[in-house]
Design a protein around this nucleic acid. Structure first.
Length: 416
RNA sequence: GUGGCCGUAGCUCAAUGGUAGAGCCCCAGAUUGUGGUUCUGGUUGUUGCGGGUUCAAGUCCCGUCGGCCACCCCA
């Protein structure tokens, strides 16, 4: 029964799952807008070339790609940044700088799925384009922290590990390492801690000792200190840690880079990002050059962390329950009153209330049970009392008789 | 892509190689028009799928598909 289930790594969103997704999206939007970011979106399908050339060779193996009917090599987007760079290069003159853009979109990878890692997921992307000052990096990290705080997470739940690629490129420059070896060495440093020390040492060769020494001492830079001070000024210092071991796999990063992890170390990275000052120029063949930076946060790991942290979980459940509730359930106790009920239902819905009723004849007890399950705050009974109606406050259980002409004002007072 | 573990009702899980079960959910009732609690009854399976061993397979073997974990990689 292969047709009974979604393709591996793809999800069906049943109403309950979709409510969670909507909750996550709502928080993402809310906080991004709080920071003055505007929403945009690009196409989910792009030329494979866009990723092949500019994103670092290692990403290509994992693309969900194919040849379309026009013989074009295309790929479902694995990330937004190349698209953003492309779009900005093409349209940047229309916008005042810096651009502060965010996007909620679905992204794809062709790889074996595991927990926290599917073939499809949704991401919040927040980017600032056209500002090279460190103030933009600070703002971006602050935004990332505040997004997570909006879900109810505290400094006890997650940490933003911040590093600076320039710290390492300066280091390599100092050691007279030719620039063409930098990517490879940065990759090796990135993997430190995830693979055996000897393996990293082998890759680094002569540089192994100084690199290990630097990692051990923690490394320092004026830029990182300044960034930390600024976050401290905002009261966000407890959420971050300088960790020069963070390099990030993608080749296009050029400056500050950061990754967000749960404090317990149970999950994969919750979010990650950094500065990519050369990417716009690369993708536009040098016609447009703009500094840029951004981060992405996925819905899968975030969802797992929400489930893990009671405070966040309760906040989500409360929001979802409230959002699912209807205002009024219409009980049709006598089928002769159905037409009258429907007339009133239409009025109530026009007035903006969430109203439901039984489509076919049902026992009254059953109807009240449905009203309860749907979270209705008011039940209105159409029956022998007509032209009066019985209004029941579902919270208190109190009932009252009102005439059909002024029952909406009664309902309003209960719902208020 | 490589390796290990797993796959039983819609969900969570039982069942020494010997007749497939429980709880939850869902549905219907507990006399005529009132929910959250309770009680009674009911539906649901080619034990993922296909082969093989055996008198007999949910159980053992092989393949396949799917899931989990590690590697890989990380947006």
């Amino acid at each position: 029964m292969i047709f009974m289930q979604a393709l591996p790594g793809f999800r069906d969103f049943l109403p309950e799952d979709y409510a969670k997704r909507n909750y996550i999206f709502a928080c993402w939007r809310e906080v991004a807008r709080r920071y003055g970011f505007v929403e945009w979106e690009g196409p989910p399908l792009e030329s494979t070339e866009l990723y092949k050339k500019k994103s670092g060779a290692e990403i290509v193996d994992q693309l969900f790609n194919f040849t379309d009917k026009g013989e074009r090599e295309v790929a479902l987007r694995p990330e937004l940044t190349p698209t953003l760079a492309r779009v900005v290069a093409a349209h940047e003159r229309q916008f005042k700088k810096p651009l502060k853009w965010f996007s909620l979109g679905q992204f794809f990878r062709y790889e074996k799925q595991q927990r926290g890692r599917l073939r499809e997921h949704f991401q919040l992307n927040c980017d600032i384009i056209g500002e090279s000052d460190l103030a933009a990096d600070i703002e971006l990290v602050a935004l990332c922290i505040d997004v997570l705080r909006a879900f109810g997470f505290t400094e006890k739940d997650f940490v933003v590990r911040i590093s600076d690629r320039e710290f390492w490129t300066d280091f390599l420059h100092e050691k007279n390492v030719p620039a063409e070896r930098w990517d490879e060495l940065l990759q090796a440093i990135d993997k430190f801690g995830r693979e055996p020390r000897e393996k990293t040492a082998e890759k680094l060769g002569d540089l192994a000792e100084p690199v290990f020494a630097t990692l051990k001492s923690g490394g320092k830079s004026q830029k990182l200190s300044k960034l930390l001070d600024a976050l401290r000024g905002r009261g966000l210092a407890d959420f971050v840690a300088i960790d020069i071991g963070i390099v990030r796999g993608l080749a296009y990063y050029t400056g500050i880079v950061f990754e967000v992890f749960d404090r317990a170390g149970k999950f994969r990275a919750i979010a990650g990002g950094g500065r990519y000052d050369n990417l716009v120029a690369q993708l536009s063949n040098g016609t447009v050059s703009m500094p840029a930076l951004g981060f992405a946060m996925g819905d899968v790991v975030l969802g797992e962390l929400i489930n893990e942290i009671p405070l966040a979980r309760e906040a989500m459940e409360k929001a979802i329950t409230n959002d699912a509730k209807i205002d009024i359930y219409i009980v049709i106790a006598k089928e002769e009153r159905r037409a009258d009920a429907l007339k009133q239902i239409q009025h109530l819905r026009d007035a903006g209330y969430r109203v439901d009723y039984p489509l076919t004849s049902e026992k009254v007890g059953k109807q009240f049970q449905t009203a309860e399950q749907l979270g209705a705050r008011v039940a209105v009974l159409f029956g022998d009392e007509w032209p009066q109606l019985k209004i029941k406050d579902m919270t208190t259980g109190e009932q009252q008789l009102v005439t059909k002409d002024n029952f909406t004002t009664r309902i309003e007072s209960i719902l208020r």
